[in-house]
């Protein structure tokens, strides 16, 4: 039995694909939990993409809270005697998975990079030490809880003929004494840095928000069009929305060409760009850490270098 939950549809579909593979090895079923989403059409879509059963559950709370959702998931795991539990690895999923693991006194792996059975045991890989190593971890005992990042697995093709069951379930939930006092959508410019092929990324070397146009012009010249940034630009200064933020706690990117401009190269940022093809750094500090992680670098003031570089690249691309 493989149990799957995420509040994100795409991620759920991706996890069903992996869940299917794991379940088939053990002649088990794939069960998708849908909490507070009374959507039979979506439930059927999950079935046509590989799920066997979809449980529709109500939490009794208005919005996601890990405490109540953990109660539901813990009851469900016991109810179906679940083996692997795959949970979508956004911030909601991670805090849910961890609390759930504690409630069930079991193992949990956050942000896996691969899942497979080896020697009959559930085995998972994940990045550790800031991307310097991959740790291979093996579960002993069930259920193994794993959070799965987006785009790790491809969803299965839709099979309209597949049949399965959509079942309404209800579980006891004890309510937590914390309250949600307000929810605001975070500003987003709809940028998808994770899918970008060329990224021009900005750091604290930029003195003013208005100056970011220098980076945009370079991105335009490269026909890359995607602007990324380091933590301070997004999280502290809020010059760019969080969809631009690249790093360990932001987005992890893998473009073929990455420009780090005025970025000092803190390890958390480097962890987000490790999988890039060629990394170019521009920084006025010859000792900036970023040069250690770059293929090419120019030591110089970005205000002087960027316009020249943009011009030169325009000429070259013509």
């Amino acid at each position: 039995m493989v149990l799957i939950y995420s509040n994100n549809k795409k991620l759920t579909l991706e996890m069903i694909a992996k869940g299917r593979e794991l379940a088939d090895e053990q002649d088990g079923e794939v069960i998708v939990a849908m909490i507070d989403e009374k959507d039979e059409n979506l439930a059927n879509e999950y079935i046509s993409h590989g799920a066997d059963k979809v449980f529709l559950v109500e939490s009794g709370v208005e919005n996601f809270k890990a405490e109540e959702y953990t109660d539901i998931m813990a009851n469900m795991v016991n109810d179906v005697e679940s083996g692997p539990v795959l949970i979508g690895s956004n911030k909601y999923g991670k805090e849910l998975a961890s609390r759930l693991a504690a409630k069930l006194s079991t193992g949990c792996v956050i942000d896996c990079t691969d899942i497979y059975m080896e020697d009959g045991e559930l085995t998972v890989e994940r990045m550790v030490y800031n991307g310097n190593a991959i740790s291979v971890e093996r579960f002993s005992g069930r259920p193994g809880i794993i959070t799965v990042p987006s785009k790790l697995f491809d969803p299965l093709k839709k099979d309209e003929g597949r049949s399965g069951e959509v079942i309404e379930k209800s579980y006891d939930v004890s309510s937590s004494y914390s309250n949600i006092a307000g929810i605001e959508e975070m500003p987003s410019e709809g940028v998808d840095v994770e899918a970008a092929n060329i990224i021009v990324s900005c750091g604290r070397g930029f003195k003013n928000r208005e100056d970011l146009h220098l980076a945009e012009e370079l991105a335009d010249a490269l026909k890359g069009k995607v602007i990324g940034c380091s933590r301070p630009i997004s999280a502290d200064l809020k010059w760019l929305s969080e969809d631009h933020w690249i790093g360990l706690s932001g987005h992890k990117v893998k473009p073929s060409l990455y420009f780090a401009i005025g970025i000092s190269g803190q390890i958390q940022h480097i962890a987000g760009i490790r999988d890039s093809g060629i990394i170019v750094a521009i920084n006025k500090d010859p000792n900036a850490l970023i040069f250690d992680s770059a293929d090419y670098g120019i030591v110089g003031d970005l205000y002087e270098v960027l316009p020249k570089l943009t011009d030169a690249i325009k000429k070259e691309m013509d």
Binding site: R138, F139, G141, G144, I298, G300, V305, K308, A312
Partner: peptide, 30 residues
């Protein structure tokens, strides 16, 4: 009993070319 055991730890090296142009910006850009 630990519920998870680490069975392997593989290094992921990030070899970069580290070519840095330190002279004047014009030349560096070129």
């Amino acid at each position: 009993e630990p519920g998870i055991k680490s069975v392997d730890l593989r290094g992921v090296s990030m070899e970069r070319k580290n070519v840095v142009y330190g002279e004047d910006p014009e030349e560096g850009v070129r």
